[in-house]
Computed example of a mutant assay.
Amino acid sequence: MPVEEQQPVASVWTRPQRRREQPALSRAQIVAVALELLDTEGIEALSMRKLGARLDAGATSLYRHVANKDELLELVVDEVYGQIEVPDIWGRDWRTAVTGCAGSARAVLLRHPWVASVLGQVGLSYLGPNVMRLNERMLALFEAAGFDLPEADRALGTVMAYVIGTATTEAAWLTTLTRSGRTEQEWLNTLRPAAIEATKPYPRLHALATAEQQAEEEREDAFHYGLARVLDGLAARLA
């Protein structure tokens, strides 16, 4: 099919927006309520019908802004990415700045645990304005470190893959905890006797199982350990 005849990929970012005088609902209102619904009830609860009920609006009002639930998710995911902070490179070294951004991204993903489960399903989410601003500023950090633009792009992808992968596992774990009604430390203390018994034939695992652990601190330390090793590898490339 000739290029001029190809249909654009379906996405809220590629579809021409309808213009209306003083619409009853704004896109910002829809996104804010959808985000609240997702945070409180999870991805399974999201539907255009349920969202319309929360907004006290009919489906027609919603469809003036989004064609379907997939487009709605693109908007909400971009809104979440807008909460990630990218420190200014000036006055600090690149590793400190990247570590700050990675920590902010992890905190945002854990604050909205449903996001990790849909990142591969939200169409052209990378075209959202918040995602593009985030990527632009992160690329600037890696360029300031000494990477040329193509390798800065690879470095950015590597760091974000680590952050998203780690946060996905953490988000799933924290969601399980929320459903159980227990705190993280309570769950760990409940499992510990069984883990100690099960690992007796395995001295290395047993040593780890019998060590005193503070659950939240362990996750925090593990995240920063892995991130530091990723940045060590990138620093070696610069050297």
Rank of each mutant, 00 (worst) to 15 (best):
A102C: 10
A102Q: 12
G100V: 07
R111Y: 00
I84Y: 00
L72N: 06
P129T: 07
L72D: 00
E74V: 02
D78T: 07
E74F: 02
L149F: 07
M132K: 09
G103V: 04
I84T: 12
L73C: 06
P150H: 05
L156N: 15
M160R: 15
V108W: 03
I89A: 10
S104L: 12
V108I: 09
W114L: 06
I89F: 04
E79R: 15
R154Q: 10
C101M: 15
Y162H: 14
L75Q: 09
E136T: 13
P150C: 07
T158P: 00
N130W: 05
V122P: 01
D148Y: 02
A107S: 15
A97W: 13
A144Q: 10
M160V: 07
S125T: 02
A105I: 00
T96C: 05
A140L: 09
V80C: 08
A144M: 00
R92N: 02
A116C: 15
E136M: 14
D88A: 08
V77P: 01
F142Y: 14
P113T: 13
S117E: 15
V77A: 04
N135G: 14
P150Q: 07
L110E: 13
D153G: 12
N130K: 11
A145G: 07
A161H: 13
R133K: 14
L139M: 14
N135L: 10
L134V: 05
P129L: 08
L72H: 08
L134C: 04
R92L: 03
A102T: 11
M160N: 13
L119P: 05
W114Y: 11
